[in-house]
Simulated scan of single mutants.
Amino acid sequence: MTPSDPKADLRFYLQSARDALLWKLDGLSEYDIRRPLTPTGTNLLGMVKHVASVELGYLGDTFGRPSGEPLPWLEDAAETNADMWVTADESREYIVGLYRRAWAHADATIEALALDTVGTVPWWPSGKDEVTLHHAVVRVIADTHRHAGHADILRELMDGAVGMNESNDSMAPGDSAWWENYRGRLERAAQEAGRDA
């Protein structure tokens, strides 16, 4: 077995989450990528805006490498959760472009610094605000994969599209009839367990 490069491993998993999240926007209307699909307002393009902000913060500002990107939704005067949704004035192209610029900036930080480099997270409490680059990258990977999972569910509810990307749906093989039958079986099991409880 060939030893792996820790930075390459981290970049691979980070990029796979980035790509999965952006793929969820493909083929959808402006309305569909913005519409809130949960009681807390979870929406596809808003998650992209959020993860772009997260990358620029944890893998930029934290290590003294500000991107220079204006992020008005993170300023003190911004409304609560302004990073989790996209205004009508903020285009898909702008948000996706911001995310791609965040990738480049974050990747440059990962390339330039050793994984044991210590940074200071500006929004964490003083005295508890130091973090290694390794920790910051793992944190960003976890956050991005979490939101890619949210996006997968939202997209499935919209039009049935699922998976990591167009060529890898990561699903058991089966046509729509098989899935309908499978879901029905799960529903019956849930009802039976509910009666027995």
Rank of each mutant, 00 (worst) to 15 (best):
T42Y: 01
K128P: 01
A172H: 05
A112R: 13
Q15E: 15
G64A: 03
W124D: 09
T80A: 11
A17F: 08
E79F: 02
A78K: 08
A104H: 12
K7I: 05
A108T: 06
K49D: 01
G119E: 01
T40A: 10
G127A: 07
I141E: 05
W179E: 04
S170C: 12
N43C: 12
A82W: 11
H134D: 09
L25P: 10
S126H: 13
V51I: 11
A177E: 10
I110K: 12
A82E: 04
A77C: 02
W73M: 03
L154N: 07
G174Y: 10
N168F: 14
N181T: 13
G127W: 12
W73A: 11
T38D: 02
G160M: 01
M158C: 05
G119R: 01
E130H: 15
R188A: 15
L10W: 09
H145R: 10
A114H: 14
N165Y: 13
G46W: 06
V48W: 12
K128S: 15
W103Q: 09
D196V: 04
W178N: 03
L157R: 03
M164G: 01
D169V: 00
V121P: 02
P6R: 08
K7W: 14
G160Q: 03
K24C: 03
P72Q: 04
T117E: 14
S29T: 15
G174R: 04
F12N: 14
